[in-house]
Design a protein around this nucleic acid. Structure first.
Lengths: 243, 243
DNA sequence: GCGCTTTGTTACAAAATTGAAACAAAGTTT
DNA sequence: AAACTTTGTTTCAATTTTGTAACAAAGCGC
């Protein structure tokens, strides 16, 4: 799955190649520009998720690009600077940059910060996901099912426990709290577990299968948990039943 | 002016006092906690905008709080660490933290980063009304079609699924998000797939054909997807219908 | 109108994805 | 320590999705 599009703006073309390769290996699409003019053109023609902005460019000050990008796009802006100057950091952050990194930095850190800013921006778009502290302790859905978040358990219409394991409960909770939104396996992993996600991991799939079995949900004609092929899984519900 | 509520979690109470005073002078309301237990209680009882999280706490690992906070609240999480460890940075950012600062840091930088993450959150929440490049989750067009980006699916006016494959969905999404702009096959390829584009590749054409079939669109008199000969394809729409 | 290029259609093949089952490993309870 | 529960790994099958190739149709320039 494509993680998003990153525009990298830097006149150091060797660094561009290194950054570009690394981020593409991470699943991003990378576009490069080495001056202000090209950067603005690229920002005009391509939807962007993040911008890596070096401040020293041959045809102008990179810093002046911050407000221009803000007017053009809601992409996250990560300033990449050759010096660790607190005042410069603060000015950029105040001007609208989302993050500021000082060269030299590790590629892994760059990637993690890109992911963090994109994640935060995307979290604002999750219209039906609300703070879990604002959600009720008891959520009803389907044929009389009741998810009791205080008890970490699911009950049927006869008030019998479904005997969910903690893992199964967390997974169902994560799905319910994002009703009618497909959640990737990676996202579900991050919401419910600790540790590193491996793209070939099937554990979430197995857990979904076990959950479905307890819910009596048939994946071929699902009423509760729908597979979104190539994406992940989605909890199906009316607005009302999960509100 | 009240800028929001910050929970500062650290067992160094001198630092708590310094941070608290500084941020309150900046207009934030500051709540403090010096251990995991108190932190969780405070997070439960008070709506928060940002959390400053020290990783070394007397009754547990601060890092384990990251997923717990994520499940409880939409507050931004800024990890504050006594060491500059790249792996630790990356793990925290991957786990859900929004930022990571290394002690000692300047208060001005802390303030600027708090402001940046809150701004980022607010810009995400305001989503659909601020910038023309903003991308709504549900887009209506044509004869009652509704593209639901949360569900990765298209529905007709009777609310029936068009059963788009993920590939078809992405292609339509890319077109819709650039309404009335002809996109080359290469561009569509880059927007929707990974790997290298081959100029003789016909895959996008096939996919467009499949999409048209599901939409009931006739290429000879297209209402939705228009072929731009020698260029590529274009989604036809009023501004309103895709805004 | 003709020739050439580009795009559309179709049938079949190849590749990808997900569900199921069995067994193993890890964790928890008694 | 043994028994039980939970979770992970692996293999295979079924189904879906995507790609390929060939031919047809449409569009364009001369």
């Amino acid at each position: 799955m494509q993680k998003g599009t990153v525009l990298s703006i830097d006149d150091d073309e060797n660094l561009q190649v290194v950054i570009g390769q690394f981020l593409e290996d991470e699943g991003y699409r990378v576009i490069t520009a080495s001056n202000v003019k090209a950067a603005l053109e690229k920002a005009d023609s391509t939807p962007l998720d993040a911008i890596l902005l070096d401040l020293i460019l041959p045809d102008g000050e990179g810093m002046s690009l911050i407000p221009q990008f803000q007017n053009k796009t809601n992409a996250a802006i990560i300033v990449v600077s050759g010096k660790s100057d607190t005042t410069e950091k603060i000015v950029c952050l105040e001007m609208g940059a989302d993050d500021y990194m000082t060269k030299p930095f590790e590629m892994r850190e760059l990637s993690a910060r890109i992911k963090a800013v994109i994640r935060r921006m995307d979290s604002g778009n999750e219209g039906e996901q609300v703070k879990s502290s604002q959600k009720p302790d008891k959520i009803e859905f389907g044929d009389g099912w009741r998810l009791d978040r205080a008890q970490y358990q699911l009950f049927n219409s006869a008030n019998e426990s479904a005997d969910l394991t903690t893992g199964e409960f967390k997974l169902l909770e994560a799905l319910v709290l994002s009703v009618n939104r497909a959640l990737s396996r990676e996202h579900l992993f991050e919401l419910t577990r600790e540790g590193e996600y491996d793209v070939y991991d099937r554990a979430i799939d197995i857990q979904i299968a076990r959950l479905r079995k307890k819910l009596g949900d048939d994946p071929k004609s699902p009423k509760i948990i729908k597979t979104v092929r190539g994406v992940g899984y989605m909890f199906c519900g009316d607005q009302d039943s999960a509100a």
